[in-house]
Amino acid sequence: MSRAGTVNAALLAVLIGGAIAAHLAGELFVVTLATKAAIFALAGVGLNFALGYGGLISFGHAAFFGLGGYVTGILASHAMSGEPLTTLPYTMNGTNEMLAIWPMAMLVCGLAALAIGALSLRTSGVYFIMVTLAFAQMIYWFAVGWPRYGGEDGLSFYVRNVFPGVNSMQPLTWFAICTGLLLLALVFTATVMRARFGLALQAARRNPQRTVAVGIRPFGIRLTAFVLSAMITGLAGSLYADLNRFVSPAMLNWHMSGEIMVFVILGGVGRLTGPVAGAMLFVAMEHLLGGVSEYWPALLGLVLLGIVLFAPGGIVGILTGGRRRV
């Protein structure tokens, strides 16, 4: 196994082993924290897909995280009230089946990303960063002002949606579901990046002119990557909604976009398990520093600053000792 492979395996082992150990020790809340880390990691894996491999710095991924959450919340609340979602063109009911909700959340995010990406990819560099932020802010303000599903107050659905055959309210089971999806997303990312499409995407990031010269049009490849990236982050949003049994515009806020970006950069941009390391460290710090001081966000800031200044490859960069691949 290569050094990077060892690090990947070790990081996942820490996440999964930690959750199981906490479960055995009866520390249910630590299992919940590990679940939160797994979900954030999944959101980060989604962003990393576009940002790390494709060089598409999206500052608007909260849009997809929040949309995934809202699809989940809306379907679940309709399932609870029994009121159909729409009756035109045909009757569509809500559902509380995760296996139905996930594809729906991913579909909605994919379509949104198709529209946002098609427009945003006309720009590049800083302009791309800011135009993705603009689209996310539009959706955020729409959600704040739209009363049907709670507006700023958000939408509660009290009971976690169901997964066939298991009790999703049980913390370790729920952790297993989320981590399972995280592993799937990691395998998917690794496979795609080694395939023709992934190689073309990375080539387009490193040297756009040459990519064009060999007859590949970067636009189509980037748009596809952006859509896939949004779908993964949207799935994470769906899980986050289920973790809290609640969605609100806060999931769509630019702070959320910033946090997802932090997971990726903290862990290591363009590294397969970078977002896993970043999300784990972030969740752990948020939890532990809170006990140190009332002004703990400043301590978090200092740690982030230290990593970005002195360890530019992120955590995975430190662990593998290799140069950053971006």
């Binding site: 800083v126 910033g258 400043a298 982030l304 600053l305 200044l309 530019p312």
Partner: peptide, 24 residues
Amino acid sequence: HRDHLDQVLATFALILIASEGTRW
């Protein structure tokens, strides 16, 4: 000489420090 990503993260960290420092 770093890319925009590092700048975003570092200055995001500075916001946290400045806000809580001011509150302190």
